[in-house]
Amino acid sequence: MDGVHDLGGMHGFGPVPVDDDGPGFHEPWEARVWALSGPVMRRTTIDRFRYSIERMAPAAYLTSSYFGRWLHAIETLAADPELLDRSPVTRPAPNLPPRSCRFATGERVRVRNAVTPGHTRVPRYLRRQTGTVRRVACVWPDPTRSAATGVYGEPVVHYTVAFAAADLFGPDTDHVVTADLTETDLEAE
């Protein structure tokens, strides 16, 4: 979804608060939200949790504290009676090998312009951009589906794709940005 959470490359934010080095519990309730999130998160997917945050009203997102956003998400998830009745969901193994890969290392690929009101892990600044496949990143369930269903489905291949920052952000840059994208987010150039 085109949400305010999709911050990559946005102008207008100031200096990084480099000295704000702690976990960010500014008030006791924030630590409690962190602790009570575990039992709720175990009954759903991390993607559904993220999607709950992404759907906050933009002004509320920007003015809530980090754990204020968590509180909103856990409240949203905990309002679903089906989730409360559910047993903990099964997670896939973290280092599954790929069974087959559509794209090879070194191949040029374009990011699809997969606009959706649902959850996506394709940042706006990468849509329609062309990059180079570096390697298989991981084999993990599709985040759009995991957010929609609240359970982890069939794992799919994710690729680490490298993009020239000059293509993304203009000629004054000389670095590289990589992102991990699913096979269905990509098409051959």
């Binding site: 990559g8 991390i46 892990r121 394709v122 940042p123 990143a137 991981c138 993990w140 985040p143 994710h158 680490t160 490298a162 920052a165 000389d174 670095h175 590289v176 940005v177 990589t178 992102a179 991990d180 994208l181 699913t182």
Partner: peptide, 12 residues
């Protein structure tokens, strides 16, 4: 020096 910025967009 080359600089690679890695956006953690997947579960990895």
């Amino acid at each position: 020096m080359e600089l690679d910025v890695h956006d953690s967009t997947a579960e990895q």
